[in-house]
Amino acid sequence: MLSIFRNIRGFMMNSWLSKAPEQIKLLVVVVILVISAFLIIRPLLIPDDFGELGHFRTGALNDAVAIEFKYAGRASCVECHDDMTEMLAAGYHKKLSCEVCHGPLAGHIEDSDENEPSFPRERTLCPVCHEYLSSRPTGFPQIVSQSHNSLKSCVTCHEPHDPAPPEVPSECSACHGEISRSKAVSHHMDVECEFCHTTPELHKISPRQYRPDKPQNREFCGQCHTKNASNDTDAPLINLATHETRYDCWQCHYPHLPEAR
């Protein structure tokens, strides 16, 4: 503080300033007072931990991590429930965290008597993931809950920790809902899936390892759709030798919902 006043005095004594008009002298005092007040007060108000790690309060990082966990994480469940987690790890739900169905369980880990997990049996839970929605990726198992054993709880037939269907599905539509729904409103509604796709029996158990085959050439579609074909349907007919010979049929037509009338 003292040094500032000394500086001001020294500045005032300066021969240039002593000759300056009165107005300038007064303003110099005011300006110096305002600026020095700002410079003195500012450092006092800046938080101590500001600017240590960047242009922010270091304490903000501590604030950010001071939240309590609600979700304990899948590793915590294994410690006590190894039987269940083993079963889970072998089935389709192996990537599913326990807390998705049983709710956040950090409290349960702390004190298992006080904080019971939830054991949902409602038919509303599973359809959150498994209800048929046209936006869901192809191949993801989906049902229409209204027509799917509509009175029973899901867990009466499906063990959620190993959710393989209780019996091998007989209908392709059980898994391929999107395709079967498209086909059902198309001109191919009466064509059986197996007419085009030979399907190994094992596909129903290990769908990704054993895949159904697909038609390989134009002649396959030509069985019904060439002009000289001996069929009595109203199917649109083309000359296989001249009709867009550069392409296979399914490059332009979607066989499950063929556009051509």
Partner: peptide
Amino acid sequence: SLFSKDISDKA
């Protein structure tokens, strides 16, 4: 007026 006094023509 910041205790200014000078009202001479020059000022």
